[in-house]
Design a protein around this nucleic acid. Sequence first.
DNA 1: CTTCTGACA
DNA 2: TGTCAGTA
Length: 123
Amino acid sequence: MAEKQLRRNLAVLPIGTVMKLTGQTARQIRYYEAQQLVLPERTAGHQRLFSLNDVDRLLELKDYLAEGATIAQIRQIYQKQAQKRQQPELSDTQTRQLLAQELLSVSGLVGQRSAISQSSKLY
DNA sequence: CTTCTGACA
DNA sequence: TGTCAGTA
């Protein structure tokens, strides 16, 4: 199951194939890359190589754009999704435990009042 | 022949 | 965006 996802992320498709698969022009695909909406890999000779996930991304992009979304809006959507993968949201209890630990470790140095404001900056 | 970057109507 | 030029 994990092996399959790995293959979907394998960059092996040249732009010509992606054009046929998405119905987009090379110009558009390159433009979307410039806008950070897709991040294809490169061969030693600078040729773009797309993965199946990249193709899905472009197909999805076509829908979002058709629905009137802005390049900037779509970019933010993907950026926030990427951030959440690296920094998964904490459950309420996890947050409380973490906050409690921060409070304990910082209060010893600066006292409770400022300890609260300092630890809150961490979230 | 295919792709790449930069540029211009 | 399309398209043309000059490359790799």
